[in-house]
Amino acid sequence: MSGTSSDRPAGARDRDSEGRARNARPRDGLGRPLPYGADGVPRQPEGVVRTPPATVAEAQALLDAGKPFHAHEVFEDAWKSGPPAERALWRGLAQLAVGLTHAARGNVTGGARLLRRGAGAVEEWVADTGERTPYGMDVSGVAVWARELADAVDSGASGAVDAAERAPRLRGGGA
């Protein structure tokens, strides 16, 4: 597809190389679509199989850079490609990243809800497996971070959420 929406026929859909519908609009650091032709941030490639330590490192770097939407895609790859016994863990972490994304976008209700849902998912995974520090992550500490941020977002005490400033520390507990 070319540069601007005016270059596209009415009703035309962006497609990937395999013909699947994919929005080709550039995105900002929080994953919001920008106008065609605008400078966006590079997207995370989809379907990348990483080792769990590489997943944690890449997701943390993206969180630290204020790109929780992109971190969610890294977690989503692990959820979809990892062993079935770990899928709930990675899905919960993806939900936490999306919750931070929504909170940073100003979506108070959605942000708080997804932060709590992700916290519950990782807590349930810990309860089911007994594993407290998978791949060096302090998932219990991250769940505490998520619930505290959800409460702050709900109460309005957090004000505008800066995604980089409020990013969790996956290793070393919470924020």
Rank of each mutant, 00 (worst) to 15 (best):
Thr4Glu: 11
Thr4Asn: 15
Asp7Ala: 00
Arg8Asp: 11
Ala10Arg: 12
Ala12Val: 02
Arg15Ser: 04
Asp16Phe: 07
Asp16Ala: 08
Arg20Ser: 11
Arg22Leu: 14
Arg25Lys: 09
Asp28Glu: 12
Arg32Ile: 00
Pro33Asp: 11
Pro33Val: 09
Leu34Arg: 05
Leu34Cys: 06
Pro35Ala: 00
Gly37Thr: 03
Ala38Arg: 06
Asp39Cys: 14
Gly40Tyr: 14
Val41Tyr: 01
Pro42Gly: 12
Gln44Lys: 10
Glu46Ser: 14
Val48Ile: 08
Val49Phe: 08
Thr51His: 01
Pro52Leu: 08
Pro52His: 11
Pro53Phe: 03
Ala54Lys: 14
Thr55Trp: 13
Thr55Met: 12
Ala59Arg: 02
Ala59Glu: 01
Leu62Thr: 02
Leu62Pro: 04
Leu63Gly: 03
Asp64Met: 00
Ala65Gln: 04
Ala65Met: 08
Gly66Asn: 05
Gly66Thr: 04
Lys67Glu: 13
Phe69Trp: 15
Phe69Gln: 12
Ala71Ser: 06
His72Gly: 08
Phe75Glu: 13
Phe75Asn: 06
Glu76Gly: 01
Asp77Ser: 07
Asp77Phe: 05
Ala78Gly: 07
Ser81Ile: 05
Gly82Ala: 05
Gly82Met: 05
Pro84Ala: 06
Pro84Trp: 07
Pro84Lys: 01
Ala85Arg: 15
Ala85Met: 14
Ala88Tyr: 09
Leu89Asp: 06
Trp90Gln: 07
Gly92Glu: 13
Gly92Leu: 09
Leu93Pro: 12
Ala94Asn: 13
Gln95Pro: 12
Ala97Cys: 11
Gly99Ser: 07
Leu100Ala: 09
Thr101Tyr: 03
His102Pro: 13
His102Phe: 14
Ala103Asp: 02
Ala104Ser: 07
Arg105Gln: 09
Gly106Tyr: 09
Gly106Met: 03
Val108His: 10
Val108Tyr: 01
Thr109His: 15
Thr109Cys: 00
Gly111Ala: 03
Leu114Pro: 10
Leu115Gln: 00
Arg116Phe: 05
Arg117Cys: 05
Ala119His: 00
Ala119Ser: 04
Ala121Asn: 08
Trp125His: 12
Trp125Arg: 12
Ala127Leu: 14
Asp128Gln: 15
Asp128Ile: 10
Gly130Ser: 04
Gly130Pro: 05
Gly130Arg: 02
Gly130Thr: 04
Arg132Lys: 14
Arg132Met: 08
Arg132Glu: 13
Gly141Ala: 09
Gly141Cys: 04
Val144Asn: 09
Val144Gln: 08
Trp145Arg: 02
Ala146Gln: 00
Ala146Val: 04
Arg147Asp: 07
Glu148His: 14
Leu149Thr: 06
Ala152Glu: 12
Ala152Asp: 12
Asp154Trp: 02
Gly156Ser: 07
Gly156Thr: 07
Ser158Tyr: 15
Gly159Asp: 09
Ala160Ser: 15
Val161Asp: 03
Val161Met: 09
Ala163Leu: 06
Glu165Gln: 13
Ala167Thr: 04
Arg169Trp: 00
Arg171Lys: 11
